[in-house]
Write a protein that binds this DNA or RNA. Structure first.
Lengths: 219, 219
DNA sequence: CATAGTAGGTGAATATGTTAACAAAAATAA
DNA sequence: TTATTTTTGTTAACATATTCACCTACTATG
């Protein structure tokens, strides 16, 4: 919440959860130490990039040895706020929304979808595990009482901006937008687009127009 | 398919489908011309970036006028191969897989999921529109006869690499990987990861650690 | 036809990200 | 202990991407 003094490059920040997950696996499998080379093999990120990423947080490893798995794990847990769960709401319980509700984000993760909203009366009051679907009327009220900061938006594209305008008046900090709409938001709200059609289409473009110089993994 | 002479920066390539979709909207709404500033407002990409992106394809616009919508549209249609549909297969008809099957990619899009696969006998032979679910046994055979080049992978993480190894022996060119597994593939196959848990978690990290210097949209 | 205004294309500056290469330090082996 | 190997952390080179700022060409107007 506090404006951190230590600013990590965005590209690095995006890889942190990936590192965290893999370090967890290592720990669970009983491994004591790991080198940047091994990690690289597993997460498909260049080992120099991994060392550079880690080095933003100081000297986490030991020369000639590598990184201590348990130490790394506890360090990343702190960095990624794993102890404090971030509450998330999901708006739009359609096909994708439902899939995300059933997706167990909390596993290996500090985020949890705690409530959902839908305009369709038939979907209201449905339950997905311990998540209840509420009517759109109650949006502002519940977001406020639940103190929700992040919203996953999976509504139909034509209403995306309308819903966003309502969200803009709440205490929301970020919108993870799965709709194709490019949202207009006030500057205190951050938007991250995951546009599945664009992802698929640009992937196809890449495949058709670039000879395989090299295996490209990740973004 | 041919090793294109004209190589566009990857960052630009990823934005092309976005531009295309918006130009389509403009065209359908009867607009004749558009400036990079207007486009910028709509797709939330800096206008200079848009002009630079377009300029890789030559001079598409006219100074003092902007871009002709119809011309842009037909140009991008060609660029993005909109006339030839790319066949896609989906493997793993779980929650997310099902959502993607119901997602109408073909609308505004040159890609179509033509078949699906699942290991669960109960899901085999189900129909989603005109898409049939086949058993995993028939994977290689159907991918080959359907001449499929791109696969969407939505299987459970523990079997992702196993399925990938089978895919590696087919004529597949690309895997759109929605599983958390980081796949090992031969160099003739391209992988693009969309890791929803990582996306959510790194988004939360961003929100918590970066003061809102500016609204950040997109990747 | 002249003039004011608009808006694309692009060189140059800046910003961001990745990677090779290597010195230093620690681990390991002999 | 000493030599050898391993592996980090980091400098410097490189690669990619974004943005500014401006020139130029065209449009629109009177």
């Amino acid at each position: 919440m506090e404006t951190d003094q230590l600013i990590i490059p965005k590209a690095t920040a995006k890889r942190l959860p990936l590192y965290y997950r893999f370090i967890q696996n290592l720990y669970q499998s009983g491994k004591q130490r790991v080198s940047s080379a091994e990690l690289s093999e597993a997460v498909k990120v260049d080992s120099a990039t991994i060392r550079r990423d880690f080095s933003y947080f100081g000297a986490l490893g030991k020369k000639g040895y590598g990184y201590n798995v348990q130490y790394l794990l506890s360090f990343f847990r702190k960095i990624l706020n794993q102890d404090e769960i971030t509450k998330v709401a999901l708006i739009g319980v359609g096909n994708l929304g439902t899939a995300l509700l059933k997706y167990n984000f909390t596993k290996n993760n500090n985020t949890k979808i705690v409530c959902a909203f839908d305009a369709n009366q038939e979907k209201v009051d449905q339950k997905f595990g311990d998540i209840t679907v509420y009517p759109m009327d109650s949006l502002e009220q519940i977001l406020s009482t639940e103190e929700i900061q992040v919203v996953i938006l999976t509504v139909p594209a034509p209403v995306a901006q309308l819903v966003t305008d309502r969200l803009a008046k709440t205490g929301i900090k970020g919108i993870l937008n799965f709709t194709p709409a490019r949202l207009t938001v006030p500057s205190n709200i951050r938007v991250h687009h995951i546009d599945l059609a664009v992802e698929l289409q640009s992937f196809v473009y890449l495949i058709k127009h670039y000879s395989n110089e090299e295996v490209v993994v990740g973004d």
